[in-house]
Amino acid sequence: MRRVLILGGTAEARALAAELLGHCHVVSSLAGRVTNPRLPVGEVREGGFGGPDGLAAWLAAERIDAMVDATHPFAARMSASAAEASATNGVPLLTLRRPGWREGPGDAWERVGSLRAAADLLGHGDRVFLTTGRRSLPVFTVLPGVWLLARSVDPPDPPVPGNVHVLLDRGPYTLEGELALIREHRLDVLVTKDSGGSMTTAKLLAARELGLRVIMVDRPPPPAGVRLVESVAEAAVWAQG
Rank of each mutant, 00 (worst) to 15 (best):
S136G: 14
P158L: 10
E110A: 13
T141R: 14
L5N: 02
G104H: 02
G162I: 02
A239E: 04
F74M: 03
P223V: 12
L5E: 00
V237W: 00
P156N: 07
P138W: 06
L149N: 01
F49K: 01
D107W: 14
T35N: 09
D154E: 11
R116V: 15
P37F: 12
E19V: 02
L20E: 08
A239R: 06
M78P: 04
E19S: 13
L148G: 07
V166N: 15
L122E: 08
A15N: 04
P172H: 11
H72M: 00
R77K: 13
F140R: 01
S86A: 12
L228P: 05
L20P: 04
A87L: 11
G133K: 07
T71W: 10
W238I: 12
G48Q: 11
A18R: 15
G51Q: 02
K193C: 09
L187M: 05
A150G: 02
G133F: 09
E184T: 10
A60M: 15
P52I: 11
A18T: 03
A202S: 15
L21S: 14
L167F: 07
D194I: 06
E230A: 13
L210D: 07
V68Q: 02
A15Y: 09
E209Y: 06
H124A: 13
L55V: 03
A60N: 04
P159N: 06
H25M: 12
A83S: 13
H124Y: 08
G125T: 00
L168C: 00
A180H: 12
E62H: 15
N36I: 01
R102W: 09
V237P: 00
A18Y: 03
G162N: 15
L168W: 00
F49V: 10
A235I: 07
G42H: 09
